[in-house]
Every structure is written in structure tokens, then in C-alpha cells.
Amino acid sequence: MSRETISLADILADARVWKLKDASAAPPRPVWSTGSSSLDARLPGGGWPTASLVEVLIDETGLGEVQLFLPALVASQRRTDGETHWLVWIAPPHEPFAPALSQQGIDLGRLLVVRPASAMEALWAAEQALSSGVCAAVLLWLKGTDDRWLRRLKLAAETGGALGVLFRPERHRFESSPATLRLVMTQGEHAPHLELIKVQGGLPGPVA
């Protein structure tokens, strides 16, 4: 019985063959450096992805969780294309200290702080800001939320082309989440311990 030799190229050309996307390929959308090379190396594209939702699970503030995003926020504000230069911080745990932010290079003229009365209002505000198309990044602090709302936020981030960052307590670690990236931040011996628990197009695991 004769066997036809079939080349790989022929197989790939066959319409019946469905190709899995090469997940490790650099995403077409721009990324913003995190300011830390070891973290950059672990993220697909080498930085925080735009037009997506990033979830940071953290129990107490003060571990440098905002600092992780500040270089990206500065870079996104300095971008010259389009008009998407606004930053919106929704329900931050304390007052953002203006001198610290301008010290880091944030353009305070395009920073909005929103103090909603309830979690529902916070989520609504985040959705509006993310999908508005004028925001470079939206940071949201929440105690808890359900899966359905996270999906809406992710969709809004994709429509508006903004980076959405959600800070939640660590107890939500084992809930499913549609976020593109999920990180856990805990106290460490010398520096805070950072672990990627979900990376679309990358490998999860602790960050050195």
C-alpha cells in the first residue's frame, strides 16, 4: 500500500485544520513596561497589556502595588497618539498624595479620583471610564465582586482600549476570573512576594 507523502505545509493549508493561535507571539497591542525587568520578562509582550483587565490580589496596602503600575501610567500619559491620556482612580483606600504622583511623573491635570458610595457605583463608574475611550488606565479598588461584572469590565477595557487594574483581597484567589493577568502580592522576607496566578499567553508562577 502506497503512502502519499504529505508535507506539513500541505496539512496547514488544509481548510479543515484549525490552527491554535501562537500564544507566545507578541500581542499586536502595545504594552507598558512595569519598571521591573524580572516582571517584564514574565509577561507576554514584556509589559502590562493595554485594552485588558489586570487583577491584583492583595490584602493590605503598602506593598508597592501602585508602584508596579506607575511607570506604565506615566508612559501611557506621555503617549502622543490619540486623546486617551486620562487616568481614573476609583475608590482608592486613601487620598492619592499629589506631590508623590507628580514626583513620579504623573500629569495631575489628567488624573481623576472617583469616590463612589457603593461597590455597584464603583463598578459602573469603572465600566464607563474604561469604555469611554479617553482613559489610558483605570485603577479600581474593591472588596469583592462577581464574575459577571468582571466580564463587563474586561469588555469595556477592550472597547475603550484602556488598561483596567482591579485591586481585590486575596480571598478571591480561587474564584474564576476573566482577567488577562492575575497577580497575588503578599509580604515577603526582603521584598514583597509576587506571584502570577494567571497569564494569558505566558506561564504562571512566582516572580523572582
Binding site: 489628567r110 475611550g133 479617553v134 482600549g161
Partner: peptide, 26 residues
């Protein structure tokens, strides 16, 4: 702009109309 529907003042107005004048600030 991606999405390109809103301007910043519009976003602020919408947030303020629902959440209250004092809740949105710089």
C-alpha cells in the same frame, strides 16, 4: 481614539450626574 465616542468632560459629567458633584475630582 479607540472607541472614540466620548470626550473627557462628557465622561466626568456622566460620572457626576450619577455619583454626585463632589465625588469626582482631581
Amino acid at each position: 481614539g479607540a472607541g472614540g465616542r466620548d470626550t473627557a468632560p462628557q465622561l466626568v459629567e456622566r460620572l457626576r450626574a450619577r455619583l454626585g458633584e463632589q465625588t469626582v475630582y482631581g
